[in-house]
Design a protein around this nucleic acid. Structure first.
Lengths: 212, 212
DNA sequence: GTCTATATGCGGATAGAC
DNA sequence: GTCTATCCGCATATAGAC
């Protein structure tokens, strides 16, 4: 039953962290929801913070692996030439959405949690998590610079930030908005397509120096 | 000294909520930083949550007033015709950045806090805050539909969400990124211009049904 | 209005029985 | 591996002196 207990804790923690945030979620909330003993978290994971890391890595590792695989394929197909910016944006965003494709109010916890992480976790813990993204960010920004040579490096950094912001906010609030606003109803993959169109257009927008 | 105490609490709370988040900040942290007595918060504001609302409203009210004023001017100038989407995006985003134009690591608390609110505060409290935005959102989305008639209502909702995501994430993390990455150095008003270019391009991106 | 002292409860973590 | 019982600190909030 050991493995099952661990997974039940991970599932409950993922959902509760996503819904209420990390500091606002107690171990008692988690162990009650998972229907396991209070002491089990510290037995299996060591601490609340280590539990958070385990929850995140369960998904970030395969997502980032998939991102790099897609980028490899695009660059191989381009044979040294630039890749379409929209293809790069797509390769970066798609693995996230595929991770949890049945995106309903009660079934998109990891996405929502990842959205939260960017704004909620303290700097120190965040630094650990960002380490996992180093390769991904480096390779994608190099590819984008190649395909959008008119962009300066500073512009690239800021536009990348804007893109991650759209993505993260959408993951955090998208499902809630679909619940409260019937007009917003869309399948997750349609929302992904909307997000790709929006961010690809933003990334490729004219730079400040040229005139309209 | 009463008014001064209240303001000192508001200033300290704004900075600490922004840096560490609402649940992770204790009243002790706040009253120590403000150099006032622990009991002063409950005396002046009633509760920790009421203090948060006071901190937010100190800025949201003038910002939203300014947004509507700018929109009034644009619509008056357009005399019933559509307003350029970029002008609408500019009118929506500028008041925020002007609110705290000296944007350095330790001097952009309110922006950062507003970025956090979208992801950190629980649904119930957020609903109260969103009430203040109702008029603003309704009027801006009507104006955008007028100037981008090819967008369906659903697409408009999602693109608005993407825009708010970019804005919110930039406010939360922009200053930290400037500190850790020298290449990202920019004046706040230049970042605002970058954000306007990015989001205006995204809002105006071709819709899904048309071909590239 | 401002302070000290304190009520009361929840938090993470652990000791030790089974 | 799982449980109960408990430690101990910090949280918000308030009572009541000044």
């Amino acid at each position: 039953m050991a493995a099952e207990t661990k997974d039940r804790i991970l599932d409950a923690a993922e959902r509760l962290f996503a819904d209420h945030g990390f500091p606002a979620t107690s171990l008692r909330d988690i162990t009650n929801a998972a229907d396991v003993n209070l002491a089990a978290v510290n037995y299996h994971f060591g601490s609340k913070e280590a539990l958070l890391i385990a929850v995140l890595e369960r998904t970030t590792i395969p997502v980032n692996r998939d991102r790099l695989k897609r980028l490899d394929q695009l660059e191989a197909a381009a044979a040294g030439g630039p890749v379409e910016p929209e293809q790069l944006v797509r390769a970066f965003l798609t693995p996230l959405f595929e991770q949890q494709s049945n995106w309903t109010e009660h079934n998109f916890s990891w996405l929502k949690l990842m959205g939260r992480i960017h704004t909620e976790v303290d700097q120190e813990l965040r630094a650990k998590l960002i380490g996992q993204y180093e390769t991904v960010l480096r390779r994608f920004s190099a590819a984008l610079r190649h395909s959008l040579p008119q962009l300066g490096q500073t512009e690239m950094i800021w536009r990348g930030l804007f893109m991650i912001g759209s993505m993260s906010f959408t993951m955090t609030w998208g499902a809630s908005i679909m619940v409260t606003n019937v007009r917003a109803q869309r399948a997750p993959m349609e929302i992904l397509e909307e997000l790709i169109r929006f961010t690809a257009a933003g990334m490729a927008a004219q730079t400040g120096k040229s005139s309209k």
